[in-house]
Design a protein around this nucleic acid. Structure first.
Lengths: 159, 159
DNA sequence: TCGCCAAATGATACATTGTATCAGTTGAAC
DNA sequence: GTTCAACTGATACAATGTATCATTTGGCGA
């Protein structure tokens, strides 16, 4: 697992955090200290973290953090659509386009851990049609594709 | 969670078991006592079971079963392509069409627990193309769609 | 501003799911 | 039959996720 570089400097992180907070509020979720802290860590990390990795990062700044607390915060943030859970790796990541409609696809690089989030029309259409064909009224679609990203596959040739 | 009826009588279960065993062997896996026992339980149950549910069913007939043993058996059976893991529910189920090529889609009914397995061309094509478009060489595709199946949605109207 | 009430938190304990390790056993192939 | 890799049994533990309940917090109306 290589390390993806942190995606943003502090200034834009601050702005991103504010944007996410606004979204949560707009979707009827209180944005409490704990939830903000979880958001901040996910934003700072820029990659998927397990609940316990999150907990380890929260403890230093708030010794009272607990597993239950972290899971509750994550639950709420997922409700608000600003965090996704990666079922296949049991981890959590910030949504890449929290304003858009939801239930997208996640592409996960085995090598660097990068997660790319999409809302591919063809995949949406195909899975929707599949559900219909088999008589299911779908309420959630997990589409997680794992592989190796371009950067990891041809790391030297670029420069 | 309603109970799906057991899918087959004992005679055809026996035949199904033999067919699965043949497949495992053809794919280079020894079919040992423990693995056969796991297959038998999954076949008898006809629905997805967690590793520990499996363990509970194996213990009465073999008191020495352990979690590690169950996971090892499942690992092997997944390798052979006759068992799938449902990531979204952390459970395991017999493959519905073990002879076919693999990496299909799973539709899961929230109400009765039924799992329908498909190999939908459109979904395959769409996810493949998506990977290509984003520069990923995919090695695994988890597509799990949850919802309510037809039978559970309109249970009374049929008869 | 005050007090109310629902929501959120803190604390603890526990349940579920999954692995590491290593000694002993088994079974296919020679 | 011997041998060696694969499999198993046993034990311990790591990782992930929840239940419960007393307490605190924060938004809101009086």
């Amino acid at each position: 697992m290589g390390k993806p570089r942190k995606p943003q400097d502090c200034g834009s992180q601050q702005r991103a955090l504010e944007r996410l907070e606004a979204l949560c509020r707009a979707r009827g979720q209180r944005l409490t200290r704990q939830r903000r802290a979880v958001l901040r860590q996910l934003l700072a990390e820029g990659r998927a973290l397990s609940a316990y990795e999150l907990l380890a990062r929260l403890r230093p700044e708030d010794g009272r953090s607990t597993p239950a607390g972290v899971y509750r915060a994550l639950e709420c943030l997922m409700q608000a659509g600003v965090v996704h859970r990666l079922e296949s790796t049991r981890s959590f990541i910030l949504c890449g386009h929290p304003e858009a409609p939801h239930g997208g696809q996640l592409l996960i690089c085995r090598t660097c851990g990068q997660v790319v989030e999409t809302e591919d029309e063809r995949v949406e259409a195909a899975t929707g049609r599949l559900g219909q064909r088999l008589g299911f009224s779908l309420d959630q679609r997990f589409v997680e594709l794992t592989g190796v990203c371009e950067r990891c596959r041809v790391p030297q040739t670029a420069h």
